[in-house]
Amino acid sequence: MSLQVINLTKKFAEQTALNNINISIEKNEIIGLLGPNGAGKSTLMKSIVGALKIDEGEIIFNDKNISEYEIESKKNIGFLPENNPLYLEMYVKEYLQFVANIHKISESRVDEVIEMVGITPEKSKKISQLSKGYKQRVGLAQAIIHQPDLLILDEPTNGLDPNQIIEIRNVIKEIGKEKTVLLSTHIMQEVEALCSRVILIHKGNILQDCAIEEFKGKFDSLEEAFASYTQTEINS
């Protein structure tokens, strides 16, 4: 698995959301994508998955330009957006079977993923009847059902209770042993529990891209490091 983001710039009218971004990911790892609200994290993730058109620069995934090989690239990327768009009138297993059919995957894989994300008791319910935590698991299930090389998760534990957070983290940790996961979150314990590397983005620029120990550096906590890097930038 390899991902190269090369000189990526994205503007919305006069606002620059991403400013000449360069990222290189070569191996299976869980990477924390950090930044204040409005930093450009979601724009970056949507650009990588092909949901946003690239204005300047390029993204190379498994040695192929995602703009030229859109379908092929999407087959190997899983994405859980922040707002987790689900078909609420569908039943859980029906929805996941629908996603599996798009990817031409067997029904046995549907059952496997339902078990993996812990929604077996809920599989016959309508998605609209589920709690936020279970909806989040269904979203995660659709993102991993086709066993993508790259999994992109935008705040995957948002709105979950502490037990659900631990369960979802364990699922992500297992996936990260074999796949590359790019994970956006505001929860620093999550970064500490899951990530080996941190990319900090602020005002469309990358401020840090390093191992988690290096990011923490001289600070007592990741929260302190985050605040220092982003506030220094704000004040400078």
Results as ranks from 00 to 15, higher is better:
residue 235 N to W: 15
residue 144 I to K: 13
residue 11 K to C: 11
residue 210 C to T: 05
residue 64 K to R: 14
residue 182 L to G: 02
residue 32 G to R: 05
residue 132 K to N: 10
residue 72 E to H: 15
residue 155 E to L: 03
residue 153 L to S: 04
residue 127 I to C: 12
residue 177 K to V: 04
residue 10 K to P: 10
residue 151 L to P: 02
residue 159 G to T: 08
residue 99 V to D: 05
residue 144 I to P: 12
residue 24 S to K: 13
residue 71 I to F: 12
residue 157 T to D: 05
residue 109 R to D: 12
residue 169 R to M: 05
residue 127 I to E: 08
residue 84 N to T: 09
residue 43 T to Y: 03
residue 155 E to D: 11
residue 206 I to H: 03
residue 28 N to Y: 12
residue 42 S to K: 02
residue 123 K to D: 14
residue 81 P to T: 09
residue 162 P to M: 07
residue 181 V to S: 04
residue 213 E to K: 05
residue 39 A to H: 01
residue 186 H to Q: 06
residue 216 K to P: 10
residue 117 V to N: 13
residue 117 V to F: 07
residue 220 D to K: 15
residue 209 D to F: 03
residue 101 N to D: 15
residue 207 L to N: 02
residue 115 E to T: 13
residue 216 K to Q: 09
residue 198 V to P: 05
residue 108 S to R: 10
residue 81 P to W: 09
residue 169 R to N: 07
residue 14 E to Q: 07
residue 229 Y to K: 02
residue 166 I to P: 14
residue 108 S to N: 14
residue 24 S to A: 14
residue 141 A to E: 06
residue 28 N to L: 10
residue 95 Y to A: 09
residue 198 V to A: 00
residue 210 C to G: 00
residue 222 L to T: 05
residue 67 S to F: 08
residue 102 I to V: 14
residue 98 F to K: 06
residue 58 E to Y: 12
residue 233 E to S: 04
residue 135 K to I: 09
residue 1 M to S: 07
residue 185 T to G: 03
residue 231 Q to Y: 04
residue 102 I to S: 11
residue 204 G to W: 01
residue 202 H to C: 06
residue 36 P to T: 06
residue 55 D to C: 04
residue 167 E to A: 12
residue 165 I to Q: 04
residue 24 S to L: 15
residue 226 F to Y: 10
residue 109 R to A: 07
residue 54 I to G: 03
residue 50 G to Y: 09
residue 111 D to G: 09
residue 234 I to W: 02
residue 154 D to Y: 01
residue 136 Q to K: 13
residue 232 T to P: 02
residue 18 L to P: 00
residue 136 Q to E: 06
residue 103 H to T: 12
residue 65 N to G: 09
residue 184 S to T: 01
residue 205 N to P: 03
residue 4 Q to A: 12
residue 218 K to V: 05
residue 133 G to P: 15
residue 120 T to R: 15
residue 74 K to Q: 08
residue 211 A to M: 11
residue 227 A to F: 13
residue 167 E to V: 06
residue 141 A to M: 09
residue 164 Q to E: 10
residue 146 H to A: 11
residue 182 L to S: 00
residue 17 A to W: 02
residue 111 D to S: 11
residue 166 I to H: 13
residue 192 E to Y: 13
residue 45 M to A: 05
residue 93 K to M: 11
residue 7 N to K: 15
residue 199 I to N: 02
residue 31 I to P: 00
residue 232 T to G: 08
residue 62 N to W: 06
residue 182 L to E: 02
residue 139 G to L: 10
residue 28 N to I: 11
residue 197 R to S: 05
residue 34 L to D: 00
residue 46 K to W: 08
residue 191 V to D: 07
residue 213 E to Q: 09
residue 1 M to H: 10
residue 186 H to F: 05
residue 225 A to Y: 07
residue 152 I to D: 00
residue 55 D to N: 07
residue 166 I to G: 03
residue 46 K to T: 06
residue 182 L to N: 01
residue 117 V to H: 14
residue 16 T to N: 00
residue 115 E to A: 10
residue 16 T to G: 01
residue 41 K to H: 05
residue 166 I to Y: 14
residue 31 I to L: 07
